[in-house]
Design a binder for these strands. Structure first.
Ligand code: FES
Ligand code: FES
Lengths: 151, 151
DNA sequence: GCCATCTGTAACAACACAAGTGACATGACG
DNA sequence: CGTCATGTCACTTGTGTTGTTACAGATGGC
């Protein structure tokens, strides 16, 4: 459990759902992510609130993609997850009295904010469709066989 | 304890040590960081191995700065700490069989690596002396009083 | 030699947070 | 109504930094 893998998982799920027209239940999704249905529902709740997916209860229910992959960027997904902490490092005290510490934290925060801005800019510039297409191309180059998930 | 604050703390300590010629004991340092002497020794061990500081046991012992601040970059300190994890997010599986997941992780890793490279480049381009000078300038602009630590 | 001082290190508890898990209410369909 | 599926709560687990206690080893002054 070293890292927060919610973003990675959600990207995977969304592309998966695009490749299968039918709705997918939390249990099916949890199987393909090697995890638990509750974790899936918990994590995808944010995506539903933003309208990227929709869920239906009862017979034949489950999750469906509500918008085309070309209209969803990685940043959208990240935001839908509640903008979790990106960095594992950070300043020591909230509001230190020591002026040196303030200077150190300020310098560190500057560098981190720059890196964060770059990362978010990158995430915002890539749509899920691009990743899906990239995958298709790589697949076709490797073999002509059609790809289908284990599930 | 939300973040890994070792880097921030060590930068603070190093600049502090430069402003006080005499050696500082772990206990004094722990007081100024609001922490524990053992944590200080544990964290500063890496800096000692790299030769940025030296420690002496017994009476009058403690920690002393072994190299001028102008020869230590933030990246040096980061490396001396063992290059701790920078990001809190990451891919889901180590080596997924699903090709879509591979594509997702690859896209994500690309963006993260770019951000990491930028951050490390920034850390490598800033010396501790620069931060210390920046602090001096700000201090002088604010008031003519000489600054001295609480400890 | 002896004692106070300070580092070095092991061992373990505390804490935060994502992830895993079980229980149960709720809604939808046949 | 019974089944299937989501929605949500409460709790446990896993992982890594941080905090803490305990003790061994080295150093210098008496
Ligand atoms: S796309 Fe990876 S399991 Fe369906
Ligand atoms: S420089 Fe901040 S306590 Fe000394």
């Amino acid at each position: 459990m070293r890292n927060d893998s919610r973003l990675s998982r959600m990207l995977h799920v969304l592309i998966h759902m695009d490749r299968h027209e039918h709705s997918a239940t939390s249990e099916m999704i949890s199987k393909m992510l090697n995890t638990n249905p509750v974790v899936v529902r918990r994590t995808m709740a944010g995506l539903r609130e933003r309208g990227y997916v929709s869920s239906e209860k009862g017979h034949g229910g489950g999750w469906t993609l509500a918008r085309p992959l070309s209209e969803i960027t990685l940043l959208d997904v990240y935001n839908a997850l509640g903008e979790p902490h990106l960095f594992a490092i950070g300043p020591a005290g909230d509001q230190p009295q020591c002026l040196v510490e303030q200077a150190v934290n300020s310098a560190l925060a500057d560098a981190m904010q720059e890196a964060e801005a770059l990362l978010l800019r990158r995430l915002g510039s890539v749509t899920l469709k691009q990743i899906a297409d990239e995958f298709e191309a790589k697949l076709e180059a490797r073999s002509a066989a059609a790809y289908s998930c284990a599930s």
